[in-house]
Design a protein around this nucleic acid. Structure first.
Ligand SMILES: [Mn+2]
Ligand SMILES: [Mn+2]
Ligand SMILES: [Zn+2]
Ligand SMILES: [Zn+2]
Lengths: 143, 143
DNA sequence: CTCGAAAATCAACTGAGTTGCAATTATAAT
DNA sequence: ATTATAATTGCAACTCAGTTGATTTTCGAG
């Protein structure tokens, strides 16, 4: 994924400087096979350089507002983040009740449903988030 | 809604005592036209009686585990709760980016989609949560 | 180089939710 | 009725992801 995106260019398009922290965060998110928590991103950056957690939180919030990153509201009070570049279209997520792990699922076509989901009134619907809760294959084998 | 459910009986079925706090919480959730935060439930009970917030959180957690109440993971770190009785089937929710208000939408038929959503592996899917984010009609008129 | 804006740091804070334990209340046994 | 038992509630202190505001550092334009 990260090999398909030019992060420096992307940042320039957004009018943001390609700082080491921003680049590191985009690379980490690009290489991840699942949505990451801020804490995980922080730890991964710290294998390369010294960073303050506030910096990571502020950049994630900024990326999220710009739509460069999706912030997932999953079970629990910890947000998960994933790249929202053109190669990562929105998709549902599966979360295991036991190990709390989050899997990315294949995108689903909503088509007809989308009109129902914008609500009955004059609402404007911008994003949809689909979360499936259950027991993952690993935890099923254990119990 | 509350007039269609016998809460004392429901609690008995679950093997729970019909205590004043439990009954008050079910009545409040039953009368609500939208999902409520723990804090809101607490304030509503306190118009009737003196209660500790820990009691409310513990009962909500218990109801949630038993499937009597649905805990919604919406944007932000505040959970919302709604009755999960037979008269309240699961349904998507709309949340406004501006006022943060949560609306309950009509249930949608997932049918074919459901199989895609349980994930590619040996996962067992138990619940689905659909959250739509956007701008509500009230906030649209203001801006 | 110099200066102002952008970015990063630091310490202190916030607040929803949790934990452990004590006190109370309801239920069962004698 | 009285006691033993378990369920429920209360209290205080805690957790921890995320935030805030003020300060320092870095960077790029002139
Ligand atoms: Mn994903
Ligand atoms: Mn609802
Ligand atoms: Zn699992
Ligand atoms: Zn609104």
């Amino acid at each position: 994924m990260s090999d398909r995106c030019n992060f420096s260019h992307w940042l320039a398009l957004e009018g943001l400087r390609a700082t080491p922290v921003r680049l590191a965060m985009l690379e980490i998110l690009g290489e991840a096979s699942r949505a990451l928590r801020a804490q995980e991103i922080l730890e991964l950056i710290r294998t390369r350089r010294r960073v303050n957690k506030v910096t990571v939180y502020r950049i994630l919030e900024d990326f999220s507002r710009r739509g460069m990153v999706r912030k997932l509201s999953l079970e629990g009070r910890v947000n998960h983040f994933e790249l929202a570049c053109e190669h990562h279209p929105p998709h549902p997520h599966f979360q295991c009740q036991t190990c709390r792990e989050v899997q990315c699922l294949e995108p689903v076509a909503l088509n007809r449903m989308w009109t129902e989901l914008r609500g009955p009134l004059g609402n404007r619907a911008d994003h949809i988030e689909i979360r499936i809760e259950g027991l993952c294959h690993k935890c099923r084998n254990i119990s």
